[in-house]
């Protein structure tokens, strides 16, 4: 199972790297989104995949999964949600002001 998870993380990271290196604003934002998913999945894998009931009050099982990484990932997802919402609005405004979403044209020169 760990191998499969790591492979998924690898695919996500490579796709997001590709997207981050493209020239379109929106693709860069999507690349960051995928990278955050990869990081969260990696967290889940690194913290140890265990068999066991969900760590809830009502369950009466012999073993429970570790709740800490799940809580941390949920926090990270919420933060990612906020950052993504902001990034989308910011990239939209940038596109509106500059009339282009091509990062080559948004580079700017050294002395302005």
């Amino acid at each position: 199972m760990e191998i499969l998870m790591i492979l998924t993380v690898g695919v996500l990271v490579s796709v997001s790297t590709y997207l981050l290196l493209t020239k379109s604003l929106l693709r860069v934002v999507l690349g960051l989104l995928l990278l955050s998913h990869a990081a969260h999945l990696l967290f889940l894998t690194l913290a140890g995949l265990k068999e066991g009931a969900p760590p809830l009050l009502g369950e009466e099982a012999a073993s429970y999964a570790d709740p800490l990484p799940q809580a941390l990932i949920l926090t990270a997802i919420v933060i990612g949600f906020g950052v993504t919402a902001f990034l989308l609005v910011l990239s939209y405004r940038t596109y509106k002001e500059h009339k282009t979403d091509d990062l080559d044209q948004l580079r700017g020169s050294a002395d302005e």
């Binding site: 919402a85 902001f86 989308l88 609005v89 939209y92 509106k96």
Partner: peptide
């Protein structure tokens, strides 16, 4: 409120 605000801000413009 955050979800609706950020989506509506883009949609209304």
């Amino acid at each position: 409120a955050v979800a609706l605000l950020s989506i509506l801000t883009i949609a209304e413009d």
